[in-house]
């Protein structure tokens, strides 16, 4: 009996296709649901109804959108840099799938077990930035290029507080030795292993949002900026930059960016759950269900924030990052390190 799903998959030749298919299917359903939810949440915040006519409660709305996007004409403008233009959506699309594979849905349901999962997730986030810049540069369009430049500047700036806040959690985990449930032996906790972070919270019955509240807030805000969500959606600011880096993309290529954006939302909220909200930890219900429930709650808050606040100006965005977020996260990290060292 293989212990984890990843081991099961390791034994099979079909491992790669099966895993990829599973993730793709799940993510597609997730994106369909998230887009529907986004439209419904925005509607409810604005006291209206949102999609109601297509299917029950408008549930089939996004399916219709998808059908339409699939059948739309794919336009390649004449003066684009063709290789970059064609590659960019794929490159935006691929790392998000890889990042989802690293997530510990429960103690045994981990598609890819990796000792440095946290680092990998951030690394994959970095690839998405390259994809966005490729899209902006390859489009040969001033709006796309400006959007891409903004996106890169923003992502690089906000990655610092994001990683610093995650690092303070890693420090806390590393300071804890804990018992693995299966073995019963004391293992040195590896704070970069996503499942170890969850297990540490499980063990002490204490979610890290209580231990590291400031880190949690900083993480959440930086995650909004990382995923280009409002109020940090200046890379695609409609009033200034038409549609930002995906101005020239139509049909399926555009929907790949769309897909990547919504899956990114899922990834950062899953990571938030792993880091601060105890992962699969929860009573009665099975682990994966708790995991997804918590993730969707975080996503709901992201939507709620999006439909509440207006967009920041670019200088405000940068000021906010370098003058508020980074100092706060460094202070938080130093304080954590101090406490961990003293205790």
């Amino acid at each position: 009996m293989p212990e984890t799903l990843s081991q099961l998959l390791d034994d099979s030749v079909l491992a790669m296709p099966i895993a990829a298919g599973l993730i793709m299917g799940a993510l597609t359903i997730n994106v369909l649901m998230l887009v529907w939810a986004e439209r419904k949440v925005s509607a409810w915040i604005q006291r209206r109804m949102g999609p109601t006519e297509v299917g029950p409660f408008g549930l089939l709305q996004t399916l219709a959108d998808m059908l339409k996007l699939i059948s739309k004409q794919l336009i390649t403008p004449s003066n684009v840099d063709k290789p970059l233009f064609h590659l960019a959506p794929l490159l935006a699309f691929a790392p998000v799938i890889a990042a989802v594979a690293l997530m510990p849905f429960s103690k045994s349901l981990i598609l890819v077990q990796n000792d440095f999962g946290l680092l990998f997730v951030f690394a994959f986030g970095g690839i998405a930035v390259i994809a966005i810049f490729m899209a902006g540069w390859g489009s040969n369009n001033k709006y796309a290029l400006l959007g891409a430049i903004r996106s890169v500047a923003q992502s690089i700036s906000y990655e610092i507080p994001l990683i610093l806040s995650a690092l303070s959690v890693v420090l806390v985990v590393n300071a804890m030795g804990f018992t693995l449930a299966s073995g019963g032996s004391i293992v040195v906790a590896n704070g970069l292993d996503l499942s170890h972070i969850v297990m540490a919270q499980d063990q002490h019955g204490l979610w890290f949002v209580l231990v590291q509240p400031i880190a949690a807030i900083i993480y959440f805000i930086s995650a909004l900026a990382e995923t280009n969500r409002a109020p940090f959606d200046i890379p695609e600011a409609e009033s200034e930059l038409v549609a930002g880096f995906h101005t020239e993309y139509s049909g399926m290529r555009f929907s790949m960016f769309f897909f990547a954006e919504y899956t990114n939302m899922l990834i950062v909220s899953m990571l938030a759950v792993v880091l601060f909200f105890g992962g699969w930890d929860g009573p009665v219900l099975p682990g994966p269900l708790w995991f997804f429930l918590k993730s969707y709650m975080v996503i709901f808050v992201m939507m709620w924030v999006r439909w509440t606040f207006p967009r920041l100006r670019f200088d405000q965005l940068m000021t906010f990052c370098w003058k508020v977020m980074i100092p706060l996260s460094i202070l938080n990290l130093l304080a954590t390190a101090f406490v961990v060292a003293v205790l």
Partner: peptide, 29 residues
């Protein structure tokens, strides 16, 4: 600043709750 952000979110949530839990919207179908 954080406090004012929370105020904004409270207002939008009250509207959300009115529509979602109170089942009242302003849309004319």
């Amino acid at each position: 600043g954080f406090g004012s952000l929370l105020t904004g979110m409270r207002i939008t949530f009250s509207q959300f709750a009115k529509t979602f839990f109170g089942r009242k919207n302003v849309t004319l179908q």
